[in-house]
Design a binder for these strands. Sequence first.
DNA 1: TCTTGTTGTAATCTTATTGATTACAGCTAT
DNA 2: ATAGCTGTAATCAATAAGATTACAACAAGA
Lengths: 149, 149
Amino acid sequence: MKITSRFTVAVHTLLVIYLFGGERKTTSEFIAESVQVNPVVIRRTLLSLKAAGMIEVKAGSGGASIVKDLKDITLYDVYRAVDSVEGELFHFHENPNPACPVGKNIHSLLDGHLSDAQRAMENELKKTTLADLSGELAEKIRAQAPAQA
Amino acid sequence: MKITSRFTVAVHTLLVIYLFGGERKTTSEFIAESVQVNPVVIRRTLLSLKAAGMIEVKAGSGGASIVKDLKDITLYDVYRAVDSVEGELFHFHENPNPACPVGKNIHSLLDGHLSDAQRAMENELKKTTLADLSGELAEKIRAQAPAQA
DNA sequence: TCTTGTTGTAATCTTATTGATTACAGCTAT
DNA sequence: ATAGCTGTAATCAATAAGATTACAACAAGA
């Protein structure tokens, strides 16, 4: 099983707001066209990002803007903002038999190790900021620009 | 979304085979009673573990036994054996719009970082062997034993 | 103020994935 | 040959995610 695409959608959303925020109104519909998902999915994403204090959304007139320095937003922050994983990453079988010594102890035996693994993944996400990504993106766009006269 | 319970079921299965293998025949039904899942689920697990060279299953007469040193089986090996995650851990939105500079580059922008995160998690799983777990388990069982005369 | 475009949010539907369950052929040891 | 298991296919049910429809509330400009 995979981690929900809400996460990559949210990162995509932030980058679109950042890149186009200056020149046009970034509505849920506009963002949805870039991500290629239903606008309602984007609205839900925007709500999560707003709740996390990363963006501001204009009710009524429309459009979102970033209100936090991209240097201060890590991939982990976005991952958390949209609840990419609710609680534990690993799914345990629910009812191990407590009458069996293995069933009785399997949870306490594995929990620590599985938490460590999950934490290692999450810590890795903390290493990359949205500023890093927007920098990499700008570079790619520049490299892809048509040759100038 | 969470990682399938096949993983914890497989670890549980190996520990049951290890702990009871000496004194009784560890059939899929017996293991299923400890894990509390359907015996067919255990049979499928046994097939995976067998394919990974960790156990041997006696067709016909029944029962499984471990054929690889527990020191040489890490949690990562079990994780792989049962395909806990098929390929990528993170699920990408499928069709970002290539006509948008963000949609065009989002994949190459994120792939490396997401792979790093997944790898960090998997490397953490490599640190724990089944021998470690069986040792911890033995200790827990000893601590839980009723006081002796 | 009326109109238009947009957000916030609920409700429903579809699809995918899992694990549960049933069923049974084939094998092995007694 | 019999009884007990495994290997495996087929089906079913439950869960979760995203798609989609619908609409009230609201903000800004005509």
